[in-house]
Amino acid sequence: MAEAPPRRLGLGPPPGDAPRAELVALTAVQSEQGEAGGGGSPRRLGLLGSPLPPGAPLPGPGSGSGSACGQRSSAAHKRYRRLQNWVYNVLERPRGWAFVYHVFIFLLVFSCLVLSVLSTIQEHQELANECLLILEFVMIVVFGLEYIVRVWSAGCCCRYRGWQGRFRFARKPFCVIDFIVFVASVAVIAAGTQGNIFATSALRSMRFLQILRMVRMDRRGGTWKLLGSVVYAHSKELITAWYIGFLVLIFASFLVYLAEKDANSDFSSYADSLWWGTITLTTIGYGDKTPHTWLGRVLAAGFALLGISFFALPAGILGSGFALKVQEQHRQKHFEKRRMPAANLIQAAWRLYSTDMSRAYLTATWYYYDSILPSFRELALLFEHVQRARNGGLRPLEVRRAPVPDGAPSRYPPVATCHRPGSTSFCPGESSRMGIKDRIRMGSSQRRTGPSKQHLAPPTMPTSPSSEQVGEATSPTKVQKSWSFNDRTRFRASLRLKPRTSAEDAPSEEVA
């Protein structure tokens, strides 16, 4: 009796068929016929556990003709996506030579605008209408194809895939403007070719909807975003200037109206006075309405000098805001240009540092100066060695804690006790272990408590650290204090090793 083939788990290929790579489910599931010992083939499952149809090819690079078809379809799909992405970037994010197409579109729109203006002049109306009709045909074809291509290429973005995504893309403001202008152009052409009475009025009214094509030149909205950011950044200043200017306008108009309503027919109503105030304070000055009385002229002159300053403030605020924003954008561009080279330089330096163990090129690091100058660790070890030599091999803490019996001779020589300023008595072995921070803190506390006492003391002649007598400086308080830590004499004296002298005989010792 033939044995059933062993159940295979995992992703390994079956024996005897090495080139074939078959994806098997996580659990080997066989058909009921196979479990019962029949000759049925096992049921194939996909990666998600769903059964595959009987005629479906197995996924994998070596699955025969199905694999070749899959490779061809995958390559075609990649080319399709690449083309779609390229078209989308050309239309929505132009760079380099892609601006040539947008310059061509701008020339078409500008020519249409010029011809629309010439069509309103009686001398050039006939020729402009003929040229404009031909140009409209060209623009309908160009913009119609462009609109379709834009909607198709938007599928390269995830949020615009599918018919719902394309509809979302078509609802964008600039796409809506394109659609309105396209419909208006078709209506103008249809009305112009019919030759009816309505054609002339339709051409004159709907052609100027094509002015909206100038708005579509900035599809990404960079200028509007820049203007919005400047207004938002200086909103408080703008609101303040406009508010005060509006108050000056209504008060000036009302007072001039009261002064001129009886003697001047131009100011017969408050609305006429508001019109005069707006034209005057905005420095336009049509001259259609002028005050005639001396009181009205004085009020107009005073409020004009006051109001023009507030009406001119928004222009200066926006101008300075634009300058600052442009400078910030230039700085951001320079930062973006330098970020990648800086990151590459840091990575290269780290690779060199991690692979080169000698690091002989590091001549400006802490390790280099640590090898030249005595390190703080060596100074600490030197302090501890000196203290243990004086205390008979014991550390200062051990000397303080060691009990001394009554009447027993002390094995240590008597030492002079010292007192730290602002604290109780402490171990004499710690007097010379006072660090730089303690010395600086002690000097600052003395300056806070009594700076007036220092200038009363007789001035001391500054001497070099080499000429100081070591026996005289029994305490860190003898170090000359200065008002600034930048004094080199104080810094050098604080680094010197001060020996400890006994109370009975204080021989001067120098520590090399």
Score class of each variant (00 low, 15 high):
Met1Arg: 02
Ala2Asp: 05
Ala4Ser: 14
Pro5Leu: 12
Arg7Leu: 13
Arg8His: 03
Arg8Pro: 08
Gly10Ser: 12
Gly10Asp: 03
Leu11Arg: 09
Pro13Ser: 07
Gly16Ala: 11
Asp17His: 05
Asp17Val: 08
Ala18Pro: 09
Pro19His: 10
Pro19Ser: 09
Glu22Asp: 08
Glu22Gln: 03
Leu23Arg: 08
Val24Gly: 03
Ala25Pro: 09
Ala25Ser: 05
Ala25Glu: 08
Leu26Pro: 04
Leu26Arg: 05
Leu26Val: 08
Ala28Asp: 03
Ala28Val: 09
Ala28Pro: 11
Gln30Arg: 06
Ser31Gly: 15
Ser31Ile: 05
Glu32Val: 08
Gly34Arg: 14
Ala36Pro: 06
Gly37Ser: 05
Gly38Ala: 09
Gly38Val: 04
Gly39Ala: 05
Gly40Ser: 06
Ser41Phe: 01
Pro42Leu: 05
Arg44His: 08
Arg44Leu: 12
Leu47Val: 07
Ser50Ile: 11
Pro53Leu: 12
Pro54Ser: 14
Gly55Arg: 12
Ala56Glu: 13
Leu58Arg: 13
Ser63Tyr: 11
Gly64Asp: 08
Gly64Arg: 01
Gly66Asp: 12
Ser67Cys: 09
Ala68Asp: 12
Cys69Arg: 13
Gly70Ser: 09
Gly70Ala: 14
Arg72His: 05
Arg72Ser: 03
Ser73Phe: 12
Ser74Trp: 12
Ala76Val: 13
His77Leu: 11
Lys78Asn: 14
Arg79Cys: 06
Gln84His: 01
Asn85His: 15
Asn85Lys: 10
Asn85Asp: 15
Val87Asp: 01
Tyr88Cys: 02
Tyr88Phe: 08
Val90Gly: 15
Arg93Trp: 14
Arg93Gln: 15
Pro94Thr: 02
Arg95Cys: 10
Trp97Gly: 07
Trp97Ser: 14
Phe99Val: 09
Val100Phe: 00
Val100Ala: 10
Val100Ile: 09
Tyr101His: 03
Tyr101Cys: 02
Val103Leu: 03
Phe104Tyr: 05
Phe104Val: 14
Phe106Cys: 10
Phe106Tyr: 08
Phe106Ser: 07
Leu107Met: 06
Leu107Phe: 04
Leu108Arg: 00
Cys112Arg: 03
Leu113Pro: 08
Val114Leu: 15
Val117Met: 12
Leu118Arg: 05
Leu118Pro: 02
Ser119Tyr: 11
Thr120Ile: 03
Ile121Thr: 09
Gln122Pro: 10
Gln122Leu: 01
Glu123Gln: 11
Glu123Asp: 08
Glu123Ala: 03
His124Gln: 08
Gln125Arg: 11
Gln125Lys: 05
Glu126Gly: 04
Ala128Pro: 09
Asn129Ser: 01
Asn129Lys: 07
Glu130Gly: 10
Glu130Ala: 11
Cys131Tyr: 11
Leu133Ile: 07
Ile134Ser: 04
Leu135Trp: 09
Leu135Ser: 07
Leu135Met: 10
Glu136Gln: 15
Val138Gly: 12
Ile140Leu: 07
Ile140Asn: 03
Ile140Met: 12
Ile140Thr: 05
Ile140Phe: 10
Ile140Val: 08
Val141Met: 13
Val142Ala: 03
Phe143Val: 12
Gly144Ser: 07
Leu145Phe: 07
Leu145Trp: 11
Glu146Ala: 00
Tyr147Ser: 03
Ile148Met: 06
Ile148Val: 12
Ile148Leu: 02
Val151Leu: 11
Trp152Gly: 01
Ala154Ser: 11
Ala154Thr: 02
Ala154Asp: 00
Gly155Glu: 02
Cys156Trp: 10
Cys156Tyr: 15
Cys156Ser: 15
Cys157Gly: 15
Cys157Phe: 15
Cys157Trp: 13
Cys158Tyr: 15
Cys158Phe: 15
Arg159Ser: 15
Tyr160Asp: 01
Tyr160Cys: 00
Arg161Gly: 15
Trp163Ser: 02
Gln164Pro: 07
Gly165Val: 00
Arg166Leu: 15
Phe167Leu: 09
Phe167Val: 13
Arg168Cys: 15
Phe169Leu: 02
Ala170Pro: 00
Ala170Val: 13
Arg171Thr: 13
Lys172Met: 15
Lys172Glu: 11
Cys175Ser: 06
Val176Gly: 03
Val176Leu: 09
Asp178Gly: 03
Asp178Tyr: 06
Asp178His: 06
Phe179Ile: 01
Phe179Tyr: 01
Ile180Thr: 13
Ile180Phe: 04
Val181Ala: 06
Val181Glu: 02
Phe182Tyr: 07
Ala184Gly: 10
Gly192Arg: 10
Thr193Pro: 04
Thr193Ser: 04
Gln194Pro: 03
Asn196Asp: 07
Asn196Ser: 07
Phe198Tyr: 04
Ala199Val: 07
Ala199Gly: 08
Thr200Ala: 06
Ala202Gly: 04
Arg204Ser: 04
Met206Thr: 09
Met206Arg: 03
Arg207Ser: 03
Leu212Val: 15
Met214Lys: 00
Val215Met: 14
Val215Ala: 08
Met217Ile: 11
Asp218Val: 03
Arg220Gly: 05
Gly221Ser: 03
Gly222Asp: 03
Gly222Ala: 03
Thr223Ser: 12
Thr223Ile: 11
Trp224Cys: 02
Lys225Gln: 08
Lys225Thr: 12
Leu226Pro: 00
Leu227Arg: 00
Gly228Ser: 14
Gly228Cys: 10
Val230Gly: 00
Tyr232His: 11
His234Leu: 00
His234Asn: 11
Ser235Cys: 04
Ser235Ile: 02
Lys236Thr: 04
Lys236Glu: 13
Ile239Phe: 04
Ile239Leu: 04
Trp242Gly: 15
Tyr243Asp: 01
Gly245Arg: 01
Gly245Val: 15
Gly245Ala: 15
Phe246Val: 06
Leu249Phe: 02
Ile250Asn: 00
Phe251Cys: 09
Phe251Val: 01
Ala252Pro: 00
Phe254Cys: 01
Phe254Leu: 03
Val256Leu: 05
Val256Gly: 00
Val256Ile: 00
Tyr257His: 04
Tyr257Asn: 02
Leu258Pro: 01
Ala259Val: 11
Glu260Lys: 00
Glu260Ala: 01
Glu260Gly: 01
Lys261Thr: 09
Lys261Glu: 03
Asp262Val: 01
Asp262Tyr: 00
Asp262Gly: 06
Asp262Ala: 00
Asn264Ile: 01
Ser265Ala: 14
Asp266Asn: 10
Phe267Leu: 01
Ser268Cys: 01
Ser269Ala: 01
Tyr270Ser: 00
Tyr270His: 01
Ala271Pro: 02
Leu274Phe: 01
Trp275Ser: 00
Gly277Val: 01
Gly277Trp: 00
Gly277Arg: 00
Thr278Ala: 03
Thr278Ser: 03
Ile279Ser: 01
Thr280Ile: 01
Thr280Arg: 00
Thr282Lys: 00
Ile284Phe: 00
Ile284Met: 00
Gly285Ala: 00
Gly287Arg: 01
Gly287Asp: 00
Asp288Ala: 01
Asp288Glu: 00
Lys289Thr: 09
Lys289Arg: 02
Pro291Ser: 01
Pro291Arg: 00
His292Pro: 00
Thr293Pro: 01
Thr293Ala: 00
Leu295Arg: 03
Ala300Asp: 00
Ala301Gly: 06
Ala301Pro: 01
Phe303Cys: 06
Leu305Ile: 04
Phe310Cys: 02
Phe311Ile: 02
Phe311Leu: 05
Ala312Ser: 10
Ala315Asp: 01
Gly316Arg: 00
Ile317Thr: 04
Leu318Arg: 00
Leu318Gln: 00
Gly319Val: 01
Ser320Phe: 01
Phe322Ile: 00
Ala323Asp: 00
Leu324Met: 12
Lys325Met: 05
Lys325Arg: 00
Val326Gly: 07
Glu328Asp: 08
Gln329Arg: 13
Gln329Glu: 13
His330Gln: 02
His330Pro: 01
Lys333Asn: 02
Arg338Gln: 02
Arg339Met: 14
Met340Thr: 11
Met340Ile: 09
Pro341Thr: 08
Pro341Ala: 03
Ala342Gly: 03
Ala343Ser: 08
Ala343Pro: 01
Asn344Asp: 05
Leu345Pro: 00
Ile346Ser: 01
Gln347Glu: 08
